[in-house]
Amino acid sequence: MKVIRFYARPALEILSVEMLALALVGAVNLVWKGGGLLTGYVAAAPVVFSWSAAAVMMQLSEVYARLVLSFGATRRQITVALVFWWFATAGLAALQAGLFRPLIAFLNLSEGRDFINAIYQTPALSWFFLTLLANSVLMLSVFLPPRGWGLAGRVILNCLVLLVEMMLPIANHILGWPFQAGVLCSVLGGALLVASLLKIQWLDAE
């Protein structure tokens, strides 16, 4: 619990800044209807949110583990906290997707944009799985590279996350099977999570 508590505040801080940014864009949109790029941004809110949630996750998992170890946290505590945040951020992303869909429909912002349509038609549960996978990749990118692998390796792995993030809308848009894609995400994500958690058992403090 200590580890979860330690990062609850910075996590909420980052998330609330994201929310604020989204609200701001939404407000601009209400005033200036049909504003191309901005419209797209609001429509893509769930994606943005799941990305930011994942980014939080990544930052947390890195800071978590190495830093918190130096305060005398056990690896068991860290594992519990990571699993907690793994689900929590994914849950938030799904919630966000669920909340935004009626809003987008109400504002009728995404008319004629296939890609955006695909995004907001994707079921919330799929977003949940997608974020789980994104989190796992991020976590892996933090924990798997051996010491000294450096920034470059992490950047490459983080780019992988972006690709994963796009996978679901693409699967939905091109193949028309959003839910199956979600399940695939969760299986993959689960495997990566286990790999990360195993690595933590031999982690060095910073």
Partner: peptide
């Protein structure tokens, strides 16, 4: 320092 409060 809050970490200190939590962990020690």
């Amino acid at each position: 320092l809050r970490a200190g409060r939590l962990f020690y």
